[in-house]
Design a protein around this nucleic acid. Sequence first.
RNA 1: GGGGACGUAGUUCAGUUGGUUAGAACGCUGCCCUGUCACGGCAGAGGUCGCGGGUUCGAGUCCCGUCGUCCCCGCCA
Length: 655
Amino acid sequence: MLEKLNNLQRTHICGELHAGDVGKEVVLMGWVHRRRDLGRVIFLDLRDHSGLTQVVFNKEANLELHRKADRTRPEFVVAVEGKVVKREKTNSKLPTGEVEVVASKLHILNTAQTIPIPITDQLKASEETRLRFRFLDLRRAPMQRNLRLRHRVVLALRHYFDQEGFCEIETPFLTRSTPEGARDYLVPSRVHPGQFYALPQSPQIFKQLLMISGFDRYFQVVRCFRDEDLRADRQPEFTQLDLEMAFTTPDAVFRVVEGALTKACAAADISVAPPFPRLTYEEALARYGTDKPDTRFGMELVDVSAVFEPARETLQISLPVHALVAPGAAGFSRKQLDELSEFVKSQGASTLYTAKVKEQGIESPLKKALGETGLNRLRELTGAGANDLILAVPANKPAGADRPHAAAATALGALRVRLAAQLQLIPANQWNFLWVTDFPLFDWSETENRWVSSHHPFTAPADDDLNKLESHPGQVCSQAYDLVLNGSELGSGSIRIHDPGIQQRVFSALGLSSREASERFGFFLQALSFGTPPHGGIALGIDRIVALLAGESSIREVIAFPKTTAAQDLMAAAPSRVDPEQLRELGLWGNKRVLDCACGGVWQVEFEKYSMGEKSGVEVTCPVSKQPVHLPVGGRWRAEHWDPASRKWTEAAGQ
RNA sequence: GGGGACGUAGUUCAGUUGGUUAGAACGCUGCCCUGUCACGGCAGAGGUCGCGGGUUCGAGUCCCGUCGUCCCCGCCA
């Protein structure tokens, strides 16, 4: 029998009792974490988010009570009334280990079935099981810690931005689809059949409009949506700390963000010292082979094109060639080298050259092509010492005159990070924030055969490069910047275009005619023409920041209810089929038809051809009535039967 | 869209060259136990080997397909 709470209230939480509380009558509530039944004495560990307290039930002191305690099972919800006493033997593993509660009353508030995953810190369950039973997974202390850390970080940020004069303003979730950028999540409009809202990839345009409106310091903790493939650090919905400032410069944005990150880190008891170092995009790529370098370790890339130049024909490679040194890795086995080679190829490189620097000389498959002298020069250039391993990767394609960024050694950059981890060269507890600046304004898209924004189309070009906007778009530098922490991109921002003329020129460089531009961004272009202050800002990835501060490698560990890599919610079973009536209401059929079935259900038919003739078409069997049904479809088709009684879809077979 | 790893009891895993009734630990159930704290002891229950097909006298094991989870490339302004 379950008991009511009545007017009973907790006097303490489970993690706070200590020696000073001895003698107090207390009321605790929580979950039965563990029951240790020793026969005439039963110990219950009572758990809530704050910790554990041991509760004792003695058979001789109170037979009824002891029997009740005997009925409890793990994860039962109980209330305990009793007296705090000092323990006979202290348990030094528990913060409450000096005391225990001698129960005088036990209220079983709820029972629990045997749980599929144990509530332990070091859980071995698969992520699939954890996600299916996320509500139980979240009972575990590490998840409680992560989500409470997230709360403190967001709270600290909100407090900071408030103090800095920022105003939090909500922007719409149901908005207009933007042509540039990630794939949109679409929401059908019932009132306007065939038309759609898009969920925002970011509140970019709205925050710029707020600048035009005179809210000169805006911020928002905001959910963003992108319908792209997932990764450990990418979810279809994620949270940004979005901010924008009028009358600002990159330096001013950096100062504000550095202050914010200092507070966010402090919430995790981590101290950081601004200002953060800066690196240009060019330099980051040249030295680290990535635009988000992890600067906690060295192993920087070296351009060794000069050494490979003479052997260019023999090796059939393009220049430039970049190299890096793996310290102390000259002893790597053939198998290990093969693995590294596999890895760089998976990262898009054509080949990996290796050279082992040994006492007796340099061992390398390049010996024939480069000669002794070449290898020695390679060693000098890279600064490799005895027992080091030199790794070199040639460019896939030579750098085009108009595209100086195209031949970056990104595969080698990925190898650098992998090797540093493998060789354990990455120091723990180091927080290397970094600004990466001067990104190119455009990237060339091979698939679309046009220039695309490398940040977004509202990013301001560098003042000095305005004259190249039409002639050499690939050489135009932008006023965009990224915030990087330990090799992770935490945020991305820019100074925006506030001149409608320049905005038009950027649109046309992107291949958007002025007609298309005004169709898609007309309201925005118009707004720019009504007195827009110079402005800029940034958006910080809250999930990534909290994951790093929590020491987690996946943002799923800091999101209460995340989705799988197939963008599904295993607990809620989303996405899901919907009632055909809902689709009908939204006008979402396309080349589908809904046909009534004699059984009272409906057929949802997807087809290539639709014919009204009785002779053409297909015969299928109604899964409810088992009667044959004629569907007037031809070509490739697919039909499903919806039975409203059982609320079940059945795929039809037939021909 | 492509590559890789994995899928066996509630959970985490083992399972030999294809061969009798698929095992272990934890968890669960029952009994015993007065100071445990990952309590201990004894007994017991628990399996569509993800799913479908194929090869074979015989498949958890081999082959094909499919579904699911994770990692990476592409993609992610």
